[in-house]
């Protein structure tokens, strides 16, 4: 099993935490993992791109050339993601911020209003965990309890108050994707929507 993921979003949208958590959880699950950022010079606000590979075998190149999954959090990242697409890619869009300007027919696409959901929960920063909930429900890469354990260990001390909203966000993402896309295990292709 090998899963190659591209994460793109504004710096500050939590893609770093997204990747680190997923990497840590899959590592604890006994898998090989590589995770690296390719930032712009901006710390906040720039489009940051992360390459994450999880595999049951040795990972050679950590560079994702064709992604199994792309998670795009904002408009600039939507415009970038074409570089990594292959016909079998899964695409997760933060539909709160991404306006699709061209059709990506044949690409299985999940549109998750992550920013809106996070806002409803009272913390826009949790949009990353909404996406995570949706992603992990579809891909089932990490058992949820293990993931929650990792989330807990990374949100300690000063950050402990954030644990609740992040956990909620995770569950809301799961709920949303199940309700919208998994009725009777049916997945909607872009062309069918």
């Amino acid at each position: 099993m090998t899963e190659k993921i591209i994460l793109i979003g504004y710096g500050g949208q939590g893609m770093m935490l997204f990747g680190r958590l997923l990497a840590r959880a899959t590592m604890l699950d006994g898998k090989q993992v590589t995770f690296f950022p390719s930032y712009g010079t901006e710390v906040r606000g720039g489009a940051a791109c992360y390459h994450l590979i999880v595999s049951t075998e040795e990972i050679y190149s950590p560079v994702v050339e064709e992604a199994d999954t792309i998670i795009a959090m904002n408009q600039p990242s939507y415009l970038k993601l074409k570089n990594y697409l292959k016909p079998s890619s899964l695409l997760f869009l933060n539909s709160s911020l991404v306006k699709e300007v061209e059709s990506l027919n044949e690409i299985t696409t999940y549109r998750i209003p992550a920013t809106e959901i996070a806002n409803e929960l009272g913390n826009v920063v949790a949009s990353n965990m909404v996406m995570m909930g949706a992603y992990n429900t579809i891909k089932n890469l990490v058992p949820l309890p293990l993931f929650l354990e990792c989330l807990q260990s990374s949100l300690r001390g000063r950050k402990a108050p954030l644990l609740e909203v992040n956990t909620l966000a995770l569950l809301r993402g799961e709920e949303y994707v199940k309700k919208t896309y998994l009725k009777g295990e049916r997945i909607f292709k872009t062309s069918a929507v």
Partner: peptide, 9 residues
């Protein structure tokens, strides 16, 4: 830069 910043077990 890649080896330095990439996370691995």
């Amino acid at each position: 830069a890649q080896l330095g910043q990439m996370m691995e077990p």
